[in-house]
């Protein structure tokens, strides 16, 4: 298993290299600080250009620039920002990553717990009112764009609820750390937004997995052996349905860690997503963009690998040789 994991990791390296190179080439050829400087500061002398070349190796061809960026990234040096006053990217990145984790880790845990509970409930009470409600929720959750759900929450808590009650229990934007209460009230809505979409997808999957397992022959065998219904659900059914579900959870975790872009934008959250979109994409800051893109890529690869390993660990039929 360890050998398999290592082989998979080694196999993932070319994937990461190629995809980051493609992205690097793309963003570097689109964003040219020299041209921008020429436009924004016609009177600047050659020392300004030399300085830019010095900082970003702009006089070198893109593959070479990529290699030196990569060399830095491997050692934790993510280069210097163009848009944020020539600051080092790495400390900014880690600072923002912490803020993102504040949303994504709790969201992922909530998704895992709730999707497990909802799918068990829904599958055991198939065609009951509760099951219809769960199914309806999964459809709605999957159909609603994240940003729209975020806006709905803002409208509801920021306007309607306040108009009715005069209270505003949650912050509808920004990270507020003045007190624990502020912190909790500022993470509440963004986390809810993050949870909804993944929860809908995972519950839908989990319900199908449970239903299919519920009708399996080995469940009938357990019943014929005289195993109590409760044990059948909690031991036999859950153990078998867990195999596909755990892999989906691992992927959800990866997606949430890597992808809070939209939610952070809606809630003005100072995390990686906002860093990528506003400082990276909108300000044409290559090193900022690449830092976040690399992070998303690595997280995705790692959690996909984790999903496979968990699968093999839970299902004795799968043996990685």
């Amino acid at each position: 298993m360890v050998a398999y994991a290592l082989r998979r990791l080694l196999g993932a390296i070319p994937v990461i290299l190629v995809s980051t190179f493609v992205m690097y080439a793309l963003v570097s050829s689109i964003n040219d600080p020299i041209a921008e400087l020429r436009q924004s500061c016609p009177q600047c002398d050659s020392s300004a250009y030399d300085r830019l070349n010095d900082l970003y190796n702009l006089d070198q061809p893109i593959p070479q620039r990529y290699l030196s960026w990569l060399g830095g990234a491997v050692t934790g040096d993510l280069g210097v920002s163009t848009s944020m006053g020539e600051q080092e990217v790495a400390p900014i990145f880690w600072d923002r990553a912490k803020n993102s984790a504040l949303l994504s880790i709790p969201a992922a845990l909530i998704v895992i717990v709730f999707s497990a509970v909802l799918s068990i409930y829904s599958a055991l009470r198939q065609y009951s009112l509760g099951d219809y409600a769960v199914t309806g929720f999964t459809y709605l959750g999957l159909a609603m764009p994240t940003f729209f759900f975020g806006l709905l929450l803002q409208v509801f808590w920021g306007i309607w609820f306040q108009n009715w009650t005069g209270l505003k229990p949650f912050w509808t934007g920004g990270l507020h750390t003045e007190s624990i209460g502020d912190l909790l009230s500022s993470v509440a809505l963004p986390i809810t937004t993050l949870v909804i979409i993944s929860l809908a997808a995972d519950t839908r999957f989990g319900r199908a997995a449970m239903l299919e397992t519920r009708n399996a022959d080995f469940i009938r065998t357990a019943r014929a052996k005289g195993v109590p219904e409760r044990t059948i659900v909690l031991k036999h059914l859950l153990r078998a349905a867990l195999i596909p579900m755990v892999t989906v959870w691992a992927i959800t975790f990866g997606t949430l860690l890597g992808g809070t872009l939209v939610t952070e934008t809606v809630f003005s959250w100072p995390g990686l997503g906002r860093l990528l979109i506003f400082n990276g994409v909108f300000d044409g800051d290559v090193n900022i963009m690449m830092a976040v893109i690399l992070f998303i890529g690595v997280i995705t690869v790692l959690f996909n690998l984790l999903a496979d390993l968990l699968y093999g660990w839970l299902d004795p039929r799968v043996r990685y040789g």
């Binding site: 399996a216 022959d217 080995f218 009938r220 065998t221 357990a222 014929a224 052996k225 036999h236 153990r239 078998a240 195999i243 839970l314 299902d315 004795p316 039929r317």
Partner: peptide, 15 residues
Amino acid sequence: AMIFQDPMTAFHPAF
């Protein structure tokens, strides 16, 4: 006690 037809699927795969 019951003996089922298909021993492949009648046992739980993970125990």
